[in-house]
């Protein structure tokens, strides 16, 4: 495909209730920069059913235009429907670049679209820029489990496509002007959707606590003091989208179930962020979490061994610090 414009498109994925998933709005931030450097407009593509809320959000966070495809067959994500509509819109408008959130759905449909268009897709990017010489997008991404970063370009094929993980960029500020809204009609008939969602299962807390797959973990130890004490940690978890964990001391004291235990006799975890609250940092606990990317320690005792492995340490009362942190996150 040849690019018809110098525009940069951001795919704004929606939820079944018609609201925008955060990542799509987040991508409008780097999108703004890149579009300017490429000399084109920033266009948000919103697809879903009853998506006025998402359109409004996209329109007021920096997009120049919002292209909307709003129809019942897009309410639930399916590879076939979304691959079709994305491809159709890209072929019609011919953007030079296309950003998507690296959500499970994004990573599902992104490569189908890039393959259908015989173009290049760079997955899971952590940084974006434009190469001065060629005007192409430079996509920076982790390889080898994050041990090596690669900078990728897609010089000759269009659109240049990339997926970006949620949380890498912050949502841009709300803008005064609203984007131009363009409503597109594109339908996919039910027969061409080859997958069917039969059931949605949400896990009750504590049953299958997925610590090993968690990206963010908030853990409590002896310093939490009681079963109720864990409630402030649960609130922080909710605000961060994290998983609750604990040290052996808390389990032995009966405050929380063993399924949450991290350590030598519990689970071994490697999240992006591990927040240890009231945990002293006994070697048995460290054995389970030192491969976390970033460790935050909150403890009253300045000599607690946990501060030896923490990237960010706070000497203080977790019952003051943790609620303050929860409040701070909710503000943003």
């Amino acid at each position: 495909m040849e690019a018809k414009t110098k525009d940069l498109w951001v795919f704004v994925e929606t939820n079944e209730d018609g609201s925008a998933k955060n990542v799509g709005i987040e991508l409008l931030a780097p999108g703004r920069d890149l579009a300017a450097k490429q000399g084109g407009a920033l266009v948000a593509l919103v697809v879903g059913s009853n998506v006025e809320a998402a359109v409004e959000e996209a329109a007021t966070h920096g997009a120049d235009k919002v292209v909307v495809v709003d129809s019942p067959e897009y309410k639930q994500f399916s590879t076939d429907a979304y691959a079709a509509v994305l491809t159709a819109m890209i072929e019609k408008y011919g953007p030079t670049s296309f950003l998507m959130g690296a959500t499970p759905n994004g990573r599902d449909v992104g490569p189908r679209v890039s393959c259908r268009l015989q173009t290049g897709l760079t997955a899971d990017c952590t940084a974006l820029d434009v190469d001065e010489e060629t005007g192409c997008v430079c996509w920076t991404r982790p390889t080898f489990g994050g041990n090596l970063m690669a900078v990728i370009m897609c010089p000759d094929h269009r659109p240049q496509m990339g997926t970006v993980r949620p949380g890498v960029f912050k949502k841009p500020a709300v803008t005064e002007n609203k984007a131009e809204i363009i409503r597109e009609e594109f339908h996919v008939d039910a027969a061409s959707i080859r997958t069917r969602i039969l059931e949605i299962i949400r896990e009750a807390e504590g049953e299958n606590v997925d610590l090993e797959g968690a990206e963010i973990i908030v853990a409590g130890g002896r310093g939490v003091g009681s079963a109720e004490g864990f409630d402030v940690l649960r609130e922080l978890c909710d605000a961060l989208g994290g998983t609750l964990a604990c040290s052996r001391a808390a389990v032995d004291a009966g405050w929380i179930g063993h399924a949450h235990q991290v350590g030598q006799t519990g689970k071994t975890v490697g999240p992006k962020l591990y927040i240890a609250c009231g945990i002293s940092g006994a070697i048995q606990h460290l054995a389970g979490m030192t491969s976390s990317d970033y460790i935050v320690a909150i403890n009253k005792d300045a000599d607690a061994p946990i501060f030896g492995v923490a990237d960010f340490g706070i000497v203080g009362n977790l019952f003051d610090i943790v609620p303050a942190l929860t409040a701070e996150i909710k503000k943003r």
Partner: peptide, 19 residues
């Protein structure tokens, strides 16, 4: 269609910071 322009080792984390 995609080419590797360059690769680099991510900068090591600095030592712990007390806030």
């Amino acid at each position: 269609p995609t080419k590797v322009k360059t690769s680099f080792v991510p900068p090591r984390k600095e030592g712990g910071v007390m806030i």
